[in-house]
Nucleic acid binder design. Structure first.
Lengths: 149, 149
DNA sequence: GCATAAAGTTAAGCCCGCTTAACTAAACAG
DNA sequence: CTGTTTAGTTAAGCGGGCTTAACTTTATGC
């Protein structure tokens, strides 16, 4: 029989484990693509949150707008993102993933999901529905939390 | 009624979310402590995996032994780790967290767990046992997977 | 309209992480 | 014992990330 951990302990333990894996996979893939960590993170943010301006980058990563501008320039040079003028505010720029950039991010997901898929195979079929339900509960809670902040 | 996602989808989504949070919290705290990312990662590894030698660091982070040695020297200077001679092989060094280093890592956990605790409060009490069971199943599977590789 | 604020860009310069190369010291293989 | 391998250190130097400062261009408040 498996011993079930107390709720908060179970949650902490699982977050630790998945965080550890995510981090290792992330830095590994960033290196494999030849991108630095900040550059890679910017692509990730663009993928998850959609288009944004330079100042959004500098806010989110807590760097100066000069640094953000330099990273964006670099990514544009590599053809991973496109930088266009914001039609509503001609001071501002809109940056978005190019097809090449999107493909790079998705390749990274593929690598991360290898671990997830292996993990999924180790979960007994009879447990899968139960686990899926629990994860859906957690995912919903996380979304509410993000929205609130 | 909450719609329950299919198992593999639920797992991917949750891993994405927790990885995202872990990464943001991690880089944020590394900066707050004044440590660089590699230095911070080394402390983390020492905490999770215990004492090791310089070559273990260089293997794990895929850097040269020169780079590993430099990082260790830096952390020793800051009093975060101790470096002693391995009694069984006088060429080798044993490095371990100092009390100060351990305290720093634990403070970081505190910050990470703020998010986890907030999340936990958003899970209905009636769901908590179910979620704990599911997470225990996943944690076990992850451990088996890590052991196998 | 004019002063001020805001969005980005560019340049100069610092710090840091990493690498290679040269080296010391200890273990190991014959 | 000797040659080779292994663990680690040190120094020199490159490249990248970040910052500040100075600047351009556009929006906004009065």
């Amino acid at each position: 029989m498996r011993r079930i951990l107390p709720f908060s302990h179970a949650l902490r333990t699982w977050v630790d484990i998945s965080a550890h894996h995510a981090m290792r996979g992330w830095s590994h893939h960033a290196r494999a693509t030849g991108l630095s960590m900040p550059q890679f993170s910017i692509l990730m943010q663009l993928y998850h949150r959609g288009n944004c301006g330079i100042s959004d980058i500098s806010d989110r990563f807590e760097i100066s707008s000069a640094a953000a501008s330099q990273h964006v320039e670099n990514l544009v040079q590599q053809g991973l993102i496109a930088r266009t003028e914001d039609p509503h505010d001609r001071r501002a720029r809109q940056i978005q993933l190019s097809d090449k950039g999107r493909a790079l991010v998705q390749r990274n997901f593929g690598a991360r999901y290898d671990w997830v898929n292996q993990l999924a195979r180790l979960v007994e079929p009879k447990d899968q529905e139960k686990v899926a339900e629990a994860l859906t509960i957690l995912t919903d809670a996380a979304r509410r939390l993000d929205q609130a902040s």
